[in-house]
Computed example of a mutant assay.
Amino acid sequence: MSLNSIFQYFVPKDRKFFPLFEKASGNLINLGEALNELVHTNDLNRKTELTKNIEDFEHVGDDITHQIFLEMGKNFITPFDREDIHALASAIDDIADFIHGSAARMQLYKITDNTVPVQKLSELILQGCQDLHKAVCELKNLKNIRVITDSCVRINSMENQADYVFDRAVADLFEYEQDAKLIIKYKEILSALETATDKCEDAANVLETILVKNA
């Protein structure tokens, strides 16, 4: 190994990690927007197209997560603790996975009715993705700590709203829906959507941990 290679190994790779995190969180917005359109359109062809788009965006997210983990292995010095880099990358990847899982279930279960709870949870997911991206974009300098903390507060509030929507929706399913198959299908979809909001909160918690350690 050359002296230059050894030197590069010890140089902090801020130029690597932060752009990758911003790409990952920006990709979540793509996923959230596609999901939101999916649950608001009645065009079956468009639904199929959007479901495929969501799958493609999820694969993009997987690639970015893989790149982040590769950079951790290649670099001795990182912009913040390795466990926090891993936790944040994993939380972002989990959000993408559950958005994709929600859309896939809608297609597999042949769900065409856009129910209000499904729409509301999708809107909350998009809101969480937007707030998360806003916070992630401030990580590179930590000068606008208030932007990050405010985004985390909004994500926590969003997750609380999602819990209420989910619980109310499931209660209504059991009370008013007579078709047992539909109850199972919608409960599975609602659960995946609600879990996506939980993962947004997990990512926000990691951001708050990074702030405590580095502010």
Rank of each mutant, 00 (worst) to 15 (best):
D56Q: 10
S191T: 05
N114C: 06
I77Q: 12
R154S: 12
K16T: 07
I95K: 04
T51D: 07
I155D: 05
K23G: 08
C129F: 07
N45T: 09
L70S: 01
L182H: 11
L88Y: 04
C137A: 15
R15G: 04
N205L: 13
S191W: 05
E33T: 07
K199S: 04
P117I: 05
I125F: 14
Q119R: 01
E22G: 01
I210N: 02
F166T: 00
I54D: 06
E55T: 03
L173R: 14
R154H: 07
D163Q: 10
R15P: 04
I145A: 02
Q127M: 14
G73T: 06
E37Y: 13
F10R: 04
H100N: 02
G61P: 08
S2P: 07
C129S: 06
M106W: 07
A196T: 05
D94V: 10
Y9Q: 05
I6H: 05
I155T: 08
H66R: 13
A203R: 10
I92A: 08
K134P: 03
I85R: 01
L139R: 02
E22D: 09
L38Q: 08
D56R: 14
T78K: 09
N75A: 00
K110M: 11
A162E: 09
L121P: 15
N205I: 03
E33Y: 08
T65Q: 09
K13Q: 10
E83A: 03
M72N: 13
P19N: 02
A196D: 03
N144F: 03
N214T: 04
D179F: 07
I184D: 11
L3H: 10
I210K: 01
E194V: 14
A180F: 11
A24I: 05
E55Y: 04
F18K: 00
P79Q: 00
M158K: 11
I68A: 04
L20R: 00
